[in-house]
Amino acid sequence: MPETAALLAHLESMWRIRSFEEEVTRLRAAGDIVGSVHLCNGQEAIYTGACAALDLTRDAVFPTYRGHGWTLACGAPPHTLFAELLGRATGINGGRGGSAYLTAPGHGMYGENSIVGAGAPIAAGAALAATFDGSGRVALAAFGDGAMNQGAVHEAMNFAAVRSLPVIFLVENNHYSELTPIADMVRVDRLFKRASAYGFPGARIDGNDPEAVRQAVAEAARRARSGAGPVLLEAMTQRIVGHYIGDAQHYRPAGDLDAALAAEPIGRLTRELLALGATQAELDELTARVDREIADASARALADPLADPSTVLEHLYA
């Protein structure tokens, strides 16, 4: 049984992500943020648990366009992320990445990817480098259930297997790939089972339990660091929002969203903490503090100057 303090830390991390996404929703509705935005509401336990298990001073995470949560869990300051989404000069990539393609290498986060599956071979490459540089680095490639059908992911897994690369393949199985259920796009919907065909371990884990994710990723990382090669973790979760802001989710059957809301990780951990003796007042204090931090970060980013167009041609080449 983990200590209450560790669970409180998980709750704080998940709430920071949720609060951030809710503020993003407001900024998008107000027209301050423009373009496609993929929220991660409901999937926060994965980022929180995984990042708690990694050593982000040397490990490398490769998420997808649904990456705000990963970036925050890696420790990037919310202000620099808001600024990025708002196209401000102070954005973590000066506005060049935006919501769907930002990168935070100073925090162990080596880039969202808006090409489905593209991060998996790159993560394998980061792991390949680790086999030569003595860093002990583990690379974690995160991608969705739908990405399991992308050729690049298959190639990355076999490549990692034959070279025993220290990489963790983490599937965020939220049951949908955009508007299409994953169950309609695979014959075997227990995706972790593919690992055995490549010759490495695979497991299905509770992706709405940050502590379960932490333990699984910690074990996978330990194994990878020891030279035993990759692992495939299938974290079961659900998004409680659309694929992107504006998605009306007509494709979700009746009751699906309600079930997802009942199982979402923040409510669940809150109930667990209360059962363990935490007080509602204590939890309210935590969430209010995080909300203030997020509101402050957003307000500061909004007041920052826009990215300077005169710099737009810089950094194409060395």
Binding site: V34, G35, G87, R88, G91, G94, G95, R96, G97, G98, S99, A100, Y101, L306, A307, P309, S310, V312, L313, L316
Partner: peptide
């Protein structure tokens, strides 16, 4: 469009 990647910020993209 000149030699550049396409930046996400609308103000930057509009410049190229």
């Amino acid at each position: 469009t000149p030699d550049t990647r396409i930046p996400a910020a609308p103000g930057l993209a509009a410049a190229v």
